[in-house]
Amino acid sequence: MNIFRFAGDMTHLISILILLLKIYATKSCAGISLKTQELYALVFLTRYLDLFTDYVSLYNTVMKIVFIASSLAIVWCMRRHPLVRRSYDKDLDTFRHQYVVLACFVLALLLNEKFTIQEVFWAFSIYLEAVAILPQLVLLQRSGNVDNLTGQYVLFLGAYRGLYIINWIYRYFTEDHFTRWIACVSGLVQTGLYADFFYYYYLSWKTNTKLKLPA
């Protein structure tokens, strides 16, 4: 475990806690895409199938449980909590994510490390995570401006991906047989998706105006 990876896990955890805090404190989920949250819950559930079969470390096991629990808690809140669900703007959250799920699954069947259930679902979760943010970015563009909490949420998510890429570069140079092509390529695609958001976020910060994403 290197510092980049640990920092990446922490920023990832912070991004999820920011969201939970926002929903819990304001009893509102305005501006948050339920579809993105459902995709993230699916990412964790399909990636951590080895939760009970492979014990890597206490840290890994605890973090996996925290990620699964927190992502399901967010989805449950946005679907079931009487107060929160009222503020969910479903007519804005219209990204057809089922096609994305299907495309990722087909890709995982074709491109995986080993044609076994666990490896196919692992590859599926890697591809799905790269595009899971799309409904949220579409929702941000639809709703015009991004309130600071959702913006910070995407910012921390981007930091998590960026740190993971540095972690892979570090491991590539320090470990002789480290290769993670599937995760690396998919991680690069995912970070690229965030880059345009960061560009607008930086512009709004620099020109000190409310962040307006080009509709």
């Binding site: 990876r5 990832h12 080895d50 492979d54 890994n60 973090m63 080993k114 076994t116 995760a183």
Partner: peptide, 10 residues
Amino acid sequence: SKNRSVKDEL
């Protein structure tokens, strides 16, 4: 199960 590359990252 060494034949499968154990995923040590999250």
